[in-house]
């Protein structure tokens, strides 16, 4: 994983790092990037860079996550002093601040009303539209959130975030076909993203979890394989590949004569030999990752600890059933 600092996007930051980042806030507050000198001199002495403001914004997120509301307020005030109260980003940031400091659902409703008013004046403020969805989500109104999101992707159909979020929501309520559609939409914008492929594969896999069918499992297998092809040290890809193969092997061996019949338009079902080989590959790779992660070899530390533990569990379960 890349080094986390205040310039990277906030979604990839784990809770301990967020705490660490928010502890840097006092230092940021103490050093304003704009100079207090009058105009011609301020040009020469200001240390204002675009990075400074990105740092401010990310520090603001980190502070809100760690409940350092006072520091967050100061950062927000400084941002709005620099960019103006009516700047779209600032409106969104203020909304985030108000959401984070809202103590109960009643206060969240107030924030929600405010968003509605802003959107009535300027329906093109996509930041606020997304925040509105987020409020609906935290109020637990999932179906309203889904409606709002469909409106959002309707008017901005290339918005990756919105499609991904809509996919999540559909997956949550169990509408697999729609969730898959959304995941494919994400893939169309980022065709080489291995995580998007793995996500799509996961959705295909989950959609058929209760009663295994060949076609979705086949798609799932292909997508997991593709995600590994794009990134051959992708733990989730191997993990998923192994799970899918475990489901596919009994299905293929019992219906080997039937498989000719239900040929579907997305290509023939995979061959049993190939699936077995793929499972071996996934198992050996997972075992390698688990083995190398433990002694703390530096190049193998990029994995998420929880994911490695899950992989080890899977391998152990596998070993137990074989015995």
């Amino acid at each position: 994983m890349a080094q986390t600092n205040l310039l990277s996007p906030p979604s990839t930051i784990s809770p301990p790092t967020a705490l660490q980042l928010s502890q840097k806030a006092p230092r940021i507050i103490a050093n304003p990037p704009t100079s207090s000198l009058p105009w011609p001199l301020s040009l020469l002495f200001s240390a204002e860079t675009p990075e400074a403001w990105v740092t401010h914004e990310n520090a603001l997120y980190a502070c809100l996550r760690t409940h350092d509301d006072a520091a967050a307020r100061q950062l927000l005030d400084r941002l709005s002093a620099r960019f103006g109260e009516s700047n779209e980003r600032i409106i969104t940031l203020r909304g985030i601040y108000e959401e984070a400091t809202a103590k109960n659902n009643g206060e969240l409703e107030v924030v929600f009303k405010k968003y509605e008013d802003i959107l009535k004046q300027d329906p093109t403020n996509f930041g606020v539209r997304k925040r509105r969805v987020a409020v609906l989500k935290s109020l637990g109104r999932t179906s309203d959130a889904i409606t709002a999101l469909t409106m959002l992707v309707e008017s901005s159909p290339t918005d990756l975030e919105a499609w991904a979020e809509l996919g999540e929501m559909y997956a949550k309520v169990g509408e697999w076909a729609r969730a898959i559609w959304c995941a494919e939409e994400v893939l169309l914008v980022m065709p080489n993203s291995w995580s998007a492929h793995a996500h799509l594969a996961t959705l295909h896999y989950l959609s058929t979890q209760s009663s295994p069918h060949l076609a979705p499992l086949n798609l799932s297998l292909k997508n997991f394989a593709r995600s590994i092809e794009l990134n051959d040290s992708y733990l989730r890809g191997y993990y998923g590949l192994k799970l899918v193969c475990q489901k596919l092997i009994p299905l293929l061996s019992e219906s080997s004569s039937v498989s000719k019949r239900n040929q579907d338009e997305d290509g023939p079902p995979p061959n049993l030999e190939t699936v077995k080989k793929l499972e071996e590959l996934a198992t050996s790779k997972l075992a390698e990752i688990v083995r190398r992660y433990q002694p703390g070899t530096k190049e193998w530390q990029g994995y998420d600890g929880a994911e490695v533990i899950a992989a080890r569990e899977l391998l152990n379960r596998d070993a137990n059933t074989e015995r």
């Binding site: 008017s155 901005s156 159909p157 290339t158 918005d159 494919e184 893939l187 169309l188 914008v189 065709p191 492929h197 798609l219 292909k222 593709r226 338009e265 997305d266 290509g267």
Partner: peptide
Amino acid sequence: RSLVRGINLRTNANTLSP
């Protein structure tokens, strides 16, 4: 953006199943 979506579909169509 709808037009861009169409272009995206055209350029990245090969990631989708038939």
